[in-house]
Structures are given as C-alpha cells and as structure tokens.
Amino acid sequence: MKKFFVFLLFPMIMLCLGAEKELDLSNIKYKIVYESYSNNNWDIYIINADGSNKKNITNTPNIHEMYPKVSPNGKKIAFVVDTGEERNRGRDLYLMNIDGSNRRLIAQHGRQPCWSPDGKYIAFTKSESTRRFSLESWSTKGLFFYNMQTGKITEHPETTLEHLYNLCWSPDGQYIIATVLGGMGFKHTNIAIEVKGSSYFELNVTGCRPEFSPRGKYIGWGPSDRQFNIAKIDLSKRPPVADKDKIPFLYVTEGYEVYHLDWSPDGKYIAFSFGPDGEQNVGGMAPGWNICVAEVATGRWKMITFDGNHNKEPDWVP
C-alpha cells in the first residue's frame, strides 16, 4: 500500500502543479492497446484514450501476451507470447483480431513486430540465443518479413543485421528505423535500414526507441530514460536529423522513467509508459508503471491508467 502511494505521489504532485491541467482526452476517437501484468500473468488490454472502458482482450491466465502492435486498418494485432519460465522461457510472434479472437502463431522465436504502412507485411526480429531466454530487447538476430497474404517469411537481404529493437516502418514504406546495441559495429544508436536494399545509416539520434509521426515528418525518441525528444526527420538527407531540430518534449524527475512513445494516428497526441525506476523491456517487471497520453502541441500530459500493473508498450488503434 505504501509503495502504491509512492508510485502515485509524483503524478499527483504534477497534477497539483498544473502539468496536466485542463487536458481533456475525452474527444479522442482512438483507442490504445498495451501490455499489463497482474496475478502473475501478462495480458493485452484495450482502453479509450481518456482511460475509460478498459478491457482485457487476451485473458489467458497461463500464457503471457505482450508488445501489441495494431495493423494500419485497426483490425489485427501482432503481439508476442511467452511460454515457460526463467531461462527456459520462449518467445514467439502471434497475430489475432482486434477483439482477441482468431489468434495464430506466425513466427517461432519472433520478436519486436512492426507493420508495413500498407498492412501487407509484418517486420520482426528473432531471438538471438537458442540456449536460454533473454529479456533484453537488443538480444535479437536478423530482420524478417511476414507476408500477410501468403504467410511466408523472408529475411532482409542484409543478413548481418543484429541487435535491433523497436522497429518502426517509415510511412512511405522505404525504411525501417530501429535502435541497435552492440551490432554491426555500432555501440548504441538509432539507424534507418532500407527495406529493399542492404544499406543502413545512423539517424544522428542518441538514446533509443525512435518512432515516426504518422506522416513521417517527425520522430520522437528517448534520449534518456527520463526524457522524450522530438525532431524533424528527412531520410534523404545526411544526417537525417539535424542537431538544431532536436526539441525536448517531456521530462520527468529522477526516480521515474518514461518509455515506449507512440504517436496517435492524427499526430496530435503521444502515448507512453511512465513510472518509477523499473524494467522497460518487453515483459520486464515495472511495478507502478502506467499508460499516459501527452498533447503534442502543448506538452501537457496525464495518466490514463492508475492500477500501476506494469502497464507498458502502448499502441494506438487507428
């Protein structure tokens, strides 16, 4: 109870200070899906953008479902399923309808799904180690594409890609941006990868988890675990992101973290995860974390969940 109070303390202070004053989310027409942990189990929930009408759409007490990514037409969700425990845990990639029905396996050892803008493909990575499970987001090997029409999987022509995470397909369909850690000669940076070619290059963005705005003109990312930045991006230029264009968007005090930024389909809002120091990786323990929504134009934000059930990885439903 005491811990719960502490988790709520900061947002309550922010509320009192007016950081979230007057932010009305009730007119947003989109819903949000996210991963949440309770009763020793991960499930995927769907919720209105103002926090109303929360619903568990997987509801499987013995199976962990996480990292929901909604198709561009809003009808399907690609997500990961974990089975087994600790070092023998396994992670696979699944697909289901937006209401949780008709779930099916699409790639064993698949991780980090991301839809093509036309909804015809799901890009994903695979677990790097076959010996033991790793929660680390970067513990991946390769870049793959699942064809929604044929069900076939093909690998990206550049087969040396490794340690990619947080894939995000550019709205023009030409590139996938991602964070890379300790792979392809990079220490830890963000890159753009040609979807049909074999080249990749840095975005000039330090930190992690870049996400395109709906029209692809901006990206948002986390330069640290307590901040989001926004910047113009032009993948035809080098570097694609100029230092002068980087704008701090949101910041929380020490002891708290923000992660998993995702732009609303109309580009007016950003959903994200927020909570006390915790484990941001997919399926990582993050007690006290909640889903929040920020208004891009003003930077005002508010929590839309309050149960603190390790709520992470929000994704807007178009």
Binding site: E128, S129, T130, R131, R132, S134, E136, W138, S139, H163, L181, G182, G185, F186, K187, H188
Partner: peptide
C-alpha cells in the same frame, strides 16, 4: 561458447 548474446561494441 555459451551461446549468449554478445553486446560488445569492439567486436
């Protein structure tokens, strides 16, 4: 050797 992911920068 232990098939663990190698995060090293300087390969």
């Amino acid at each position: 050797t232990l098939d663990l992911p190698n995060p090293s920068h300087f390969k």
